[in-house]
Design a protein around this nucleic acid. Sequence first.
RNA 1: GGCGGGAUAGCUCAGUUGGUAGAGCAGAGGCCUGAAAAGCCUUGUGUCCCCAGUUCAAGUCUGGGUCCUGCCA
Length: 306
Amino acid sequence: MSQNKSSTPFVVVLQGPTAVGKSDLALELAASLGGYIISADSRQIYSQLEIGTAKPKPEELKAVEHFLIGELDPKQAFSAGEFVRRAQQIISKRSPQIPIIVGGTGFYCKALLDGLSNIPAVSDAARRELALVKNRYAKLQEVDPVLAEKLHPNDSARIERGLLVYLSSGKPLSSFWQQEQAVGSYDAFSVLLLRERQELYERINLRLDKMIADGLLQEIQELLASGYEWSDPGLNTVGYKEFQPFFQKEKSLTECLEKAKQDSRNFAKRQLTWYRKIKFDLTLSAGSDNLPTILSRLQIERPWLF
RNA sequence: GGCGGGAUAGCUCAGUUGGUAGAGCAGAGGCCUGAAAAGCCUUGUGUCCCCAGUUCAAGUCUGGGUCCUGCCA
């Protein structure tokens, strides 16, 4: 047991709801293990969204090497598949350095660890064709009954995705599930960082107030002035989209700020629901001195690291 | 002080010709195979402000209180 049993790369995964305090712990952990950080965050991947996505500060980005932060233009769409591809590449290139994968996008972490079915990319032609489909759920029932069975008729996003895959490939999305999964197998140590609900909600509220104080509105103003639009993927982000009515002079700043806080709280709740069914090696309560706890566990379970 | 409007779920409010009440939001729980900070589902017994009256029956009508609120003074 003196070394990693196979060549499977070792990764630490740190997850938790928004505003719980993941970044600080990740920095400490990376420093202790001599590792680097990969952000598993569907919003921090965008450039120019600094304040509202609570990106690490420049000093922090300098102290520890970070990946997948600010790499994408807000006009570009991103996806779980793309995340997995990029993360895998970074991990293999950097091996045997230890990546600390930190982020609140649970789906990305799951996709990286458990793999995604190998589903063909969606074509532009399919998108154009989809625009002509009237009753989408009925169409999906006809074309991919297996998927339709699993979806609620109101679940527009997944119905759309199912149809796009069918229109692109000519095969039902569900037919790809059985196929081999593109699993990059890792020896992962998964940590969940939690906080008491009430306290988490209070932190979220305070964080939004602080974002405004730190110049969130100016940041949005600059984005708009640079030609970004509210319909761009990057701006479809909690902490940004709620301020559209303010910039369009339809609602007061207070109203928009309250909505942003509300949406963040709802988001945190959804994250917590997601994490409940994910298996973690260690669940920690934020606020205490968690670094030693993680390190001692690793010393026992992954002695070759030390 | 005068003339109005209102008092119903944590919040904002609906409630039809009287038959013991319902939406949105919040809260809570859940789903999730390339938009996941997205998308979606489930979940509402509360002194209908108080007292008295009419009535088989009052959130709903009548009278009297109390407290908000708008305009005029």
